[in-house]
Amino acid sequence: MSSRKVLLLVASPRGAASTSRSLGEHLLAGLEERGMALKTLQLYPALGDERKMSELLAAIELCDLLVLAFPLYVDQLPAPLIDLLRQVAERRNGQARTGQALAAIVNCGFPETAHCRPAADIVRLFAVQADFRFLGCLATGMGGAIGNRSLAKAGAIVRHQRKALDRAAAFLCESREIPADVVALMGRAMMPRWFYNFVADRGWKKAARKYGSSAKLFDRPYAGSEGA
C-alpha cells in the first residue's frame, strides 16, 4: 500500500459547506481506499492570517499530490487562490523539480462545463511554472445542483461525477494522468439544461421572496450615479 500524502486544498469562500469540498472529499475517499494519507485544508480561513497561511504553504511543500478544489469565479480561479499559487511559484522559482503532482477539481454554476476551460488552462500553466507534474483537471457544470451535500446524498444526478472521481482516484494514486474519457465523464450534464435553468431561476425568485426583495430583483442602484 502506498503511504503517499495527498493534500486537498478547498478554495471556496463557502468552505466546509461548499460544492468544492463535496467533490474533493469524494475523490479523497477513493484515494484513502488506496492507502494515501489525507489532509484537507481550507484556503479562505488563512486569508489575512500569517500563521495559517505559513502552515498552508508548508503543507503544500510536504504533499506528494496536491488537489485544488474550487468554484469558477468570472471564468477562472477565485482571486485568493491565484494569489496563493503565485506565492507558491515565486517560492519555487529556480529550484529543481520536486516530484510532486497536481490535480484540480473545478465546478461552475452554469449548466455547461465548457465555462471551466480557462481555469483548467491556468491550473496546468501553474503546474508547469511551479514544477508540479500536472495530472489533470476535472470540471463540471451545474455545481449548484450539488450544494453542500455529499455526493452520496446528492443521489443519481451526480452518478457521472461520482464515477469519474472514483476512476480518477485510481489514476492519481499511481501518479498517472487522468484519462480524457474520465475528464469527459466528469463534465457530463447532471440533468437537462432547460430543467437546471428552470430550477435555478425559480430558486433566485424564491430566495428573493424569503428576503422580501422580489420587487427589487432588477434594481439598478448605481444607474444615474457616477459614471452612469
Binding site: 477565485p78 503565485r86 501553474f126 450615479s225 457616477e226 459614471g227 452612469a228
Partner: peptide, 25 residues
C-alpha cells in the same frame, strides 16, 4: 458605481499562469 455607466472597460494585468493577476481578479 463606475462600471454601471461605463461604455469602455479596460483591464490591465501581468499575465499570470495564462490568466489575470490577483490584483485585478
Amino acid at each position: 458605481r463606475a462600471w454601471a455607466g461605463a461604455e469602455r472597460i479596460i483591464l490591465l494585468t501581468p499575465v499570470t499562469f495564462g490568466g489575470y493577476a490577483p490584483e485585478l481578479k
